[in-house]
Design a protein around this nucleic acid. Structure first.
Lengths: 217, 217
DNA sequence: CCATGTGAAAGCGTTCACAGCG
DNA sequence: CGCTGTGAACGCTTTCACATGG
């Protein structure tokens, strides 16, 4: 039951783990307390073998002949992904997308907590989005220091993205979720940057439709 | 200069192509008219070799000793991805996320045009988001038929997702961009479904921070 | 001389097939 | 008997290294 923390795990595995988590949680809510690798694989559109391999990589959770215990597995995957503790997150750029993200219901499930937003627009400053108050951008740096913020979500116009990232303090910030069209290298200033481009997803589907590619998330 | 349409292209290649497109467009706006595979690779956080392989796969665009012509390359990649023609798209679920998506500035760049939104909330019906009018959900089906809509973006609560997807007419709809937490198989009713989960992206970054994984978008 | 285009080699990730165990 | 856990086979992707050509 020990977690394996030595081996290098690829991002593909991590992404699948998040899918398992979602489908296991869903099955749990439906009253299931055991799930087989086959069931998980079908719900996630995968091969059963890879589900077992992925899970085995972190320690042997399964019971032969039975499957995996929903409760244990949820806890384990949460722990692997580092979702077992509440994480404070701040948003930079309180536009439409930023607002939608703060209000997105899926974040609480995974223990993410938006505690503040930052913007330059005086109209927005002082307002509250969800539980997050909007502060002027100048206060971002001291706020990060004061609250030891480790994760920043970036939803500013693309033109401002670089300057903000440059100015983040790598002594505190370890991860940036970048929703702008700027492509940052995966490691910037010792911070993990994760680029998300909503248009990209539509572009991929455009190609899939044009030609014929069978591929999932 | 002919496009290769026979070989099977993996989704990984397509995703990189969208990155190339973005960084090439950006370089073009900065006044560059030639780019080398090395420059593209650095901007996208990749190896130069794979950039050349990807591009060569669709025909030889490069000029030896010089690099790639920005203007031509943009046009070619747009064509490969099927972004060369304007596409009408509808949104189902006019909540915060849906609103943000319609207003997201990146879609016009790639010729996506949100022409309507659908919702059950009487408060929202009749209003306009961007250029899209909000209609009652009942009108989705006839609207799709009337306007021959091929792409649907789904931003409804997760509990309603399955019913809506089941009810889409595969005679018209070829692609669904699913923002709900429900995981759909990549092909549902002969439609391409692409699952996007915003929480997933934070989960991945959470893991990256906890352990140490170097990986990009 | 410089950067492309491309075989050949290396590295990864997935699938298969089955032994082992409850 | 059913399902996990896993070595071994397979196939795909990426990287290397260099011949080719403007």
């Amino acid at each position: 039951m020990e977690l394996n923390t030595t081996t290098k795990i690829s991002e593909a595995v991590i992404r699948r783990l998040t899918d398992y988590l979602r489908c296991i949680r869903c099955a749990g809510e439906a009253g299931r307390d055991m799930l087989t690798s086959l069931e998980i694989s079908e719900r996630c559109g995968l091969n059963a073998s890879i589900v077992r391999k992925d899970l085995a990589q972190f320690g042997a959770y399964g019971v032969k002949g039975m499957g995996y215990n929903v409760r244990d597995l949820t806890r384990q995957i949460n722990k692997i992904l580092g979702l077992d503790k509440l994480k404070d997150v701040v948003l930079v750029g309180a536009g439409h997308l930023g607002t939608a993200i703060i209000r997105y219901p899926g974040f609480a499930d995974v223990n993410f907590n938006f505690i503040a937003a930052f913007d330059t627009d005086p109209e927005k400053i002082g307002k509250t989005i969800g539980y997050a108050k909007v502060y002027p951008l100048e206060e971002l740096k001291p706020f990060i220091r004061k609250h030891a913020i480790q994760i920043v979500v970036l939803t500013v116009p693309s033109s401002e993205a670089q300057a903000i990232v440059n100015d983040l303090d790598p002594g505190y910030v370890k991860g940036v979720l970048n929703f702008t069209a700027v492509i940052f290298p995966p490691k910037q200033n010792n911070m993990f940057v994760h680029n998300i481009d909503l248009a990209k997803e539509l572009e991929v589907i455009s190609y899939c439709m044009k030609n014929c590619l069978s591929q999932g998330s």
